[in-house]
């Protein structure tokens, strides 16, 4: 779980702007999932190029901010980097050139490019369709497409408490810094961080009890209200028409 990603990114509700905002979260979730599933099966250059184009178009429609989006695309996970570096060396095939005595194969380079395009198209499309939606609407959409309500409720509640614990963690860390703690690779640091972790677990367990009691005090009887879904309207049906056409076109490019 990588570094500087701020937990604040999760809490920006109601930042849905642009033409995509009018579309029902359920429709967007279904669109994203269907696109990503089809993407997993694509290998040919024209299909992947078209998929990347489609993702870019949707990203423009969603008015994704340029800077953070580029940062998200370039933040490839560690092993993806290994994968891209090793594939040209390990895949057998026609030799393009030699690098430090290792042969770089054309097939390997092609495969690395395929993976880069596929991963980026996927990240872009997921960002465009889902990440602007806000967590509460995402939870409702999950329930609306058949995810068990318990998972959707758990999702909502978890988001709510991440804010709490992020603050708590920052406070404890500040207190440690104030006493002169600087994290390093030594027994004292590990011990301090381990105790910090234990302290957070303890406080969260206590908070969980308090929350459960507070909910009961307000008449919670063991079931949450159902998510309310609005009726699909014109923009939703429009996307529901356009999307299968896009998916069919991609499948045609790949499999014909």
């Amino acid at each position: 779980m990588s570094g500087k990603a701020s937990a604040a990114a999760i809490f920006a509700e109601n930042r849905d702007t642009g033409p995509l905002a009018a579309i029902d979260p359920r429709v967007r979730l279904v669109a994203a999932i269907s696109f990503l599933v089809l993407l997993a099966t694509l290998h040919s250059a024209p299909a992947l190029a078209a998929a990347l184009m489609a993702a870019m178009v949707v990203a423009v429609f969603a008015r994704l901010p340029l800077g953070p989006t580029l940062r998200r695309l370039t933040a490839v996970e560690g092993f993806l980097l290994f994968l891209l570096l090793t594939l040209p060396l390990t895949m057998p095939g026609t030799e393009l050139f030699r690098l430090f005595g290792l042969s770089v194969s054309e097939e390997g380079v092609n495969r690395a490019i395929v993976i880069i395009v596929r991963v980026n198209a996927g990240v872009l499309m997921a960002a465009a369709l889902l990440s602007t939606m806000g967590t509460m609407r995402l939870a409702g959409a999950m329930n609306g497409i058949g995810v068990p309500p318990r998972i959707a409720h758990l999702f909502q509640l978890t988001v709510r408490y991440i804010a709490v614990f992020h603050e708590e963690y920052a406070r404890l860390r500040r207190a440690m810094r104030a006493r002169g703690f600087r994290a390093g690779s030594n027994r004292h640091s590990w011990r301090s961080l381990g105790h910090l972790l234990g302290m957070l677990v303890l406080r969260s367990a206590e908070r969980a009890e308090r929350v459960a009691w507070a909910m009961r005090a307000r008449g919670f009887s063991g079931s949450f209200p159902a998510f309310s879904q609005r009726r699909l309207e014109r923009p939703d049906y429009l996307l529901l028409l356009v999307w299968p056409a896009l998916l069919l076109a991609l499948a045609w490019l790949e499999f014909s």
């Binding site: 068990p148 978890t158 614990f165 992020h166 972790l197 367990a205 969980a208």
Partner: peptide, 28 residues
């Protein structure tokens, strides 16, 4: 989920949130 009734959801959520936050700690 079968072992978890809705009454206990808030408790799991609190701990899930904790583990999410704790995984942001970087350790040398």
């Amino acid at each position: 989920l079968k072992k978890l009734d809705e009454d206990r959801l808030p408790r799991v959520a609190v701990l899930a949130a904790l583990f999410f936050v704790a995984s942001l700690i970087s350790v040398a």
